[in-house]
Amino acid sequence: MTRPLLDTAFFQRIASGDQTAFALLVAHYHKSVYSVAYRLTRSVPLSEEIVQDVFLKIWLKREMLVEIVNFPAYLHTVSTNMIYSTLRQQQRDVLSISDADLEERTPAVNATEEVVQDREYENLLEKAIRRLPERQQQTYILIKKEGMKREAAAAAMNISPETVKSNLEQAMKNIRAFCMANLDLLMIIIWLGR
């Protein structure tokens, strides 16, 4: 394997915020993360989320990259932590928060602290939705909030069901990344209920 771009200067470019270089890094290095995650979870969406979370973490701490001598070793450590903690979520659908939960949960029985947290998640989710590009936002609202079927949403917006699907997928990825970046939520997976 030739690795012409992955030298010190390359990591310096990422450390200084070069998105092109970082995208190349993801394209080049996601395979080892995805290969292990997929074989252990046997779920494409879940494995994609692990890949996204691992590289989000690396992007947020990109300044550190200039000091890291062995990037694969660093990546494998971050990835191992992420995969292991995902596997430890024994009952994901109970421990994780789906956006449906955020709307339906009645906080009366929760401890005060949890109520506050719930509100924070809700605010964060709302903020994430407001930041979406317009067509992703519309798609998300029609399907996830108003419960429309994909075909109905497609008809309402006069676009194809395929476009609805890809808009929704990108919206989910954006919301997830925004929430992960803005809350130290490594213990709490915001699972957007596919």
Partner: peptide
């Protein structure tokens, strides 16, 4: 583990989400 690869469109979606988050 033998490499498995995500489609480029998924990589693009993931990196877009990461950059946008920040």
């Amino acid at each position: 583990a033998p490499d498995m690869e995500l489609p480029v469109s998924t990589i693009a979606a993931i990196t877009t989400a990461i950059f946008q988050a920040e």
